[in-house]
Amino acid sequence: MVRKMIAEALGTLVLVLFGCGAAVIAGADGASGIGLTGIALAFGLAIVAAAYGLGAISGAHLNPAVSLGMVAAGRMGWGDAFGYMLAQVIGAVLGAAVLYGIASGTAGYSIAQNGLGQNGYGAGYLGEYGLTAALLFEGAMTFLFVTVILGATGPGAAPGFAGLAIGLTLTAIHLVGIKVTGVSVNPARSIGPAVFVGGRAIADLWVFIVAPLAGGGLAGILHAIGLTRAED
């Protein structure tokens, strides 16, 4: 279990450092920035890297909503899930800490102004979508994301392609929704940057815990009862 927790922490660190790092360092604005498409690809490629590099150890959940979905689907026990979730949050905080250390190495960076890729919604945040839109987006997209994961890693799935399918799905979710919430679909990914940014990022954090967990849990339940599961 210790090896699995280390793998989950390291993989979640990679996700935060690559994905949020793309937003903070490479930038979404200006002619020299990689743009929203580049940020979406960074998140997706981070999942692909972690899935193939660490998946054999822990399954590379990297996300409390995924671990909850696995429990609801009957593919994981609560004890292991809590260990995974703890490791994921620790990894996300460490990833955000590393990113903060790198980003603050330039005089033009301010955490108050530039942030750490934290999630949010409402006035002053990206597309200024409201609370209802944020909850609906995060819940629905996490449901779809976990449904893909359960299918891609279940019996009958094409062997060797799970990491690619999952990474591309996360990329697509980001392509659709960065303007809505910055895209969480992962409570750990949201907690990491929020710890350092504080203020509004902490105040908004409940949205990015409640909605993804609800979506992931529902995906697991529907999988367990056979509605989204291939025939045995």
Results as ranks from 00 to 15, higher is better:
98 V>W: 07
94 L>P: 00
2 V>A: 14
46 A>W: 07
205 L>Q: 11
208 F>P: 02
43 F>E: 03
153 T>C: 13
203 A>P: 01
48 V>N: 03
68 L>Y: 00
178 I>Q: 05
210 V>H: 06
106 T>Q: 15
121 Y>H: 09
88 Q>V: 11
103 A>S: 13
148 V>A: 09
38 G>C: 09
84 Y>T: 11
4 K>I: 12
86 L>P: 01
231 E>G: 06
85 M>P: 03
125 Y>F: 15
198 G>F: 00
182 G>W: 00
41 L>P: 02
193 P>Q: 07
18 F>K: 00
113 Q>Y: 12
52 Y>P: 04
191 I>P: 01
226 G>L: 12
109 Y>H: 03
186 N>W: 07
145 F>Y: 14
5 M>L: 14
101 G>R: 10
20 C>K: 01
157 A>R: 11
89 V>I: 15
166 I>Q: 09
41 L>Y: 13
28 A>I: 12
171 T>H: 04
172 A>F: 14
55 G>C: 10
168 L>P: 02
43 F>T: 07
174 H>I: 09
27 G>T: 12
96 A>L: 10
226 G>V: 11
136 L>G: 05
109 Y>C: 06
105 G>M: 13
38 G>E: 08
222 L>Y: 05
33 G>D: 02
66 V>P: 02
142 T>V: 12
32 S>T: 14
88 Q>L: 05
232 D>L: 14
110 S>T: 14
86 L>T: 15
134 A>P: 08
165 A>H: 08
13 L>C: 14
119 N>W: 03
142 T>E: 07
70 M>F: 15
34 I>F: 10
229 R>M: 08
192 G>R: 00
194 A>L: 09
124 G>Q: 11
167 G>M: 08
79 G>H: 11
85 M>K: 03
21 G>Q: 06
120 G>W: 00
158 A>V: 15
182 G>K: 02
80 D>E: 15
95 G>E: 08
77 G>Q: 12
2 V>K: 13
181 T>F: 04
16 V>L: 13
185 V>Q: 00
81 A>N: 07
169 T>Y: 06
143 F>H: 02
14 V>Y: 03
211 A>M: 11
21 G>A: 09
42 A>W: 09
164 L>W: 12
107 A>R: 12
196 F>E: 10
129 Y>G: 01
172 A>M: 15
78 W>C: 11
192 G>S: 12
73 A>K: 03
167 G>N: 02
120 G>Y: 02
44 G>N: 03
73 A>Y: 04
48 V>M: 15
167 G>E: 05
150 L>C: 06
1 M>Y: 10
44 G>I: 04
183 V>I: 15
197 V>D: 05
153 T>V: 08
96 A>Q: 07
16 V>H: 03
44 G>E: 06
13 L>Q: 09
124 G>W: 13
70 M>I: 10
93 V>G: 03
183 V>H: 01
26 A>H: 11
71 V>H: 01
91 G>H: 03
